[in-house]
Design a protein around this nucleic acid. Structure first.
Length: 214
DNA sequence: AACTCGGGGCA
DNA sequence: TGCCCAGAGTT
């Protein structure tokens, strides 16, 4: 298992390969950014960025979305997967935002996660991107990369992975580390056919070495 | 813990 | 054409 120092070293190698690793979601105000993150579930950021300009032009405030009709919201996001769920999430989330938070996106993880459509990962991304509050959001890319590099045990669940990452990585590297692992998982260490042959982390990657052998 | 939503991206 | 995916809610 990689120790703290080795983990940071690996993250820094990722940073050299992807110096501009950051979210591709269009950054707007916290309200609209939070909605963008909700929409990005099981979809690419590119696909999300394609629909959000028209969507947010139509629904500028939480009040607008709270009173929206579901079919109309769906019509704006039909090119995304899971669009019926997502439309429902956006409307209900806006209603709850008005009822409980006076229409202002809250700045704690607990409050964010109390909103419909906002889970652990979305909450962490909003905290980090909107408010600069350190969080190590764990998604499928982060999970896969952490396991392959043996930063975490192979059977770890998401919460365990997050705990270990937050322990092994200094807080000021949480947000960057998240972005780097996302890029690593998307462009170097893909789920199906990872580019192990040209991987600069192959020497510390047990799974990669096994993969290259055969 | 398993199931469901779902069009896109990619082999 | 088939398979998986920058998740979260429900049961």
């Amino acid at each position: 298992m990689l120790n703290s120092e080795e983990t940071v070293k690996a993250l820094n190698v990722m940073g050299e390969v992807f110096p501009n690793a950051t979210t591709s979601l269009t950054k707007t105000d916290p309200f609209h950014f939070m909605l963008s993150v909700i929409l990005s579930a099981q979809a690419t950021d590119k696909a999300v960025n394609l629909v959000t300009p028209a969507l947010f032009e139509r629904y500028k405030t939480p009040v607008d979305l709270a009173n929206a009709s579901l079919p109309e919201v769906e019509s704006y996001i039909k090119t995304l997967g899971l669009y019926r769920n997502k439309a429902r999430f956006l409307v209900k989330c806006s209603q709850e935002l008005l009822e409980r938070f006076n229409g202002v996106v809250p700045k704690t993880r607990k409050e964010l996660m109390s909103l419909t459509g906002v889970g652990r990962k979305t909450a962490d991304v909003v905290l980090a991107e909107c408010f600069g509050i350190p969080a190590f959001a764990v998604d499928t890319h982060v999970s896969r990369v952490a396991k392959r590099l043996a930063i975490v045990p192979p059977e770890s669940d998401v919460l365990t992975i997050e705990k270990i990452l937050m322990r092994k990585v200094p807080k000021d590297l949480w947000i960057k580390g998240h972005h780097r692992m996302i890029f690593w998982g998307r462009y170097q260490c893909m789920a199906r056919n990872p580019k192990c042959e040209t991987c600069p982390l192959l020497d510390i990657c047990q799974e990669g070495q096994i993969r290259v052998m055969r």
